[in-house]
Design a binder for these strands. Structure first.
Length: 598
RNA sequence: UGGGGAUUGGUGUAACGGUAGCACGACUGACUCUGACUCAGUUAGUCUAGGUUCGAAUCCUAGAUCCCCAACCA
């Protein structure tokens, strides 16, 4: 049977080694890479590296999953190995096909191409049910598993406590033949849900609770999205997971810290199957099966966010956000809609590393990774969020000039574009102060500033209504400063972005802030919802953007100069674009002194 | 009170008995047609107490603190 491979480990992958040469380690090392290096040195797996990402299809992927995906795929890629996407679909009562496609899409979007040169493909735990069943029968035959009739509460009671040993089930000594018959009848659906379980016979006194005769199978009369009504028993995680890894020839089975206590069980099950088996398959039980190594690392924890499935679901259900892909959500879909790039998320995953320490990573790190990526790549545009009218007094009536603007100073190849300039403009309200503090060096009465790529202008006056609200600012431009250059070499302290009023494209712009006001809403005393940030979403209904921004397709990303990076939202309609602010630019003015800032 | 993990500047992460380094942040300054970017510099750390050693973040002993474990979830 092809499923059973010798334990000589390594040579026995169902997949040929990837042909691509290993890429040099351009990334920082971590303890997992050290383990792999050592394994390669000792030829433990004959140089193979085969990882996997094993989501249960019961929810959307979040940034923590993204990190795990990047880790696992990165290892496969860097060591010339393979990466499997495997759906751990062992619980039909919780899983839905709807999530399967979403997960595939997210994993692929992140760049972990499970079908590419380093991809092993898509796998399903449910495809292995028959083999798992056979192995379970084998454990019964070996006297290592038994059918238990205890109800759940009773079993729980008998499991004992950390400081107190459990008591052995009265069914523990059930004869092999009886177990075999009962287990077969469980499979055939003869018993109602919860009536019996198959348990491993390990040690009810073990200080590790996981080893106190854990359940391998429970009865569940549920329709499985993949196997339909074929099964009425379903394997438990601990029993199933190592077998899935084994079948796929996984070498390094990477999971999070809370599974550390499960590793002895992971190993116990595979060793139990291998008991009596031999490398060459001689003997009554056949060939040994592959025994992967489980390695645990600390899950990603980001401050000001929640990542638990239940909590995220509540945010969606209770309408605190607009859905799983709300740009404020820490889901992969949310970050994508927000305007994050896979490159930024991957860089973030690498930067934060892999350790066994429960760290809390600052959200700022993620934002920084995005800025870093987009600064190099995003085309620049001009857009005004809170418009303040500017009238150029000495501008020839009706004249429109096309000024040439650089698309990306970081990338000369991005070229230039032409933007209309006229005597009636909008600038940012924050860029004008009638009575400025010392360190404010934007526009104010009597002061000269540059309008980006256009002209130097000097403020000559302010128009106000009866209440004293500023309606418009009057300026005079210097015709000799075409393109924003002063022929006499005179300097101005500030350069402002602007949009010609009559040419402006109206757009909705959504500004996001952190969803929570508490650093760790998860760990706080009060319910996490009490820390929801009431100002996490601000909608600017009528932003004024340069004409080229009138039409754009979803996921196009731009830097609005001096404001931040913006991304077209799928809510956009023809003539009614919607932009999401992915992240602001760093702003040392807003941050600092003199009561300044936007 | 049992078992399993962990602990290095504000944050994250290196070091594997031999100069505690890097990144982010913060702060200075330079540059600048984005108060961005870039560049230069500054700041600040080995949980505690003993011990071994010429030499300890690293090895030993004791302690402190934090995380995980008593679903027929994963």
């Amino acid at each position: 049977m092809s499923a059973i491979r010798p334990a000589s480990d390594g040579v026995d992958s169902p997949f040929p080694a990837a042909r691509l040469p290993p890429t040099p380690p351009a990334v920082p090392t971590n303890f997992i890479r050290q383990i792999i290096d050592e394994d390669n040195r000792s030829q433990k797996w004959a140089g193979r590296v085969h990882t996997r990402f094993p989501p249960e299809p019961n929810g959307y992927l979040h940034i923590g999953h993204a990190k795990s995906i990047c880790l696992n795929f990165g290892l496969a890629r860097d060591y010339g190995g393979r990466f499997n996407l495997r759906f751990d679909d062992t619980n039909p009562t919780k899983e839905e096909v709807e999530y399967v496609e979403a997960i595939k899409r997210d994993v692929k979007w992140l760049g972990a191409d499970f079908e590419g040169p380093h991809g092993g493909g898509v796998f399903w735990a449910s495809d292995y049910f028959e083999r798992m069943y056979e192995w379970a029968v084998e454990l019964i035959r070996k006297g290592m598993a038994y059918v238990c009739d205890l109800p759940a509460e009773e079993m729980s009671r008998q499991r004992g406590a950390p400081t107190r040993p459990g008591v052995e089930s009265p069914f523990r000594g059930r004869p092999v033949e009886e177990n075999l018959g009962l287990f077969r009848r469980m499979r055939e659906g003869e018993f109602p849900d919860g009536a019996r379980t198959l348990r491993a016979k390990i040690d009810m006194a073990s200080p590790n609770l996981n080893l106190r005769d854990p359940v391998m199978y429970r009865i569940l009369h549920a329709t499985h999205h993949n196997t339909g009504d074929q099964w009425s028993i379903y394997p438990m995680y601990d029993w199933a997971h190592g077998l899935e890894d084994s079948i796929e020839g996984i070498t390094h089975s990477i999971c999070t810290l809370e599974f550390e206590n499960h590793r002895p069980l992971y190993d116990w099950f595979i060793n139990a199957i291998n008991q009596g088996r031999t490398a060459d398959g001689s003997g009554p039980w056949g060939q040994r099966i592959h025994h992967p190594q489980q390695i645990e690392f600390a899950r990603l924890v980001l401050n000001y966010t929640v990542m638990g499935k239940r909590k995220m679901l509540e945010l969606v259900r209770e309408g605190h956000v607009r859905g799983w892909d709300d740009p404020r959500m820490a889901t992969v879909a949310g970050f994508r809609r927000r305007g994050y790039t896979p490159e930024a998320i991957r860089a973030f995953a690498e930067e934060t590393g892999a350790t066994k320490f429960n760290a809390v990573v600052d959200l700022g790190r993620l934002e920084n990774a995005l800025r870093d990526d987009l600064n190099r790549r995003a085309p620049r545009r001009m857009g005004v969020l809170r418009p303040l009218k500017v009238v150029i007094e000495n501008w020839p009536a009706g004249r429109v000039e096309m000024v040439e603007c650089v698309n990306n100073p970081e990338d000369p190849a991005a070229g230039t574009r032409r933007v209309p300039f006229s005597g009636a403009l909008y600038i940012e309200r924050d860029d004008f102060m009638e009575d400025p503090p010392k360190k404010f060096f934007r526009l104010s009465p009597g002061r000269e500033v540059r309008l980006r790529y256009a002209y130097l202008v000097t403020c000559t006056g302010v128009e106000k209504d009866a209440q004293g609200n500023i309606l418009a600012v009057r300026c005079a431009y210097d015709p000799a400063t075409t393109g924003g250059n002063a022929p006499d070499g005179r300097k101005v302290k500030a350069t402002l972005h602007w949009v010609s009023a009559e040419h402006a494209a109206r757009a909705e712009v959504r500004l996001f802030d952190r969803l929570f006001t508490h650093e760790t809403p998860d760990r706080a005393d009060a319910d996490f919802r009490t820390f929801l940030n009431p100002d996490s979403l601000e909608v600017v209904r009528e932003a004024m953007l340069e004409p080229s921004l009138a039409e754009a397709s979803p996921e196009e990303r731009y830097q609005f100069e001096r404001l931040g990076y913006f991304c077209v939202d799928p809510d956009s309609k023809a003539g009614a674009p919607v932009y999401n602010r992915s992240v602001t630019l760093k702003d040392t003015w807003a941050k600092g002194g003199e009561g300044g800032g936007a």
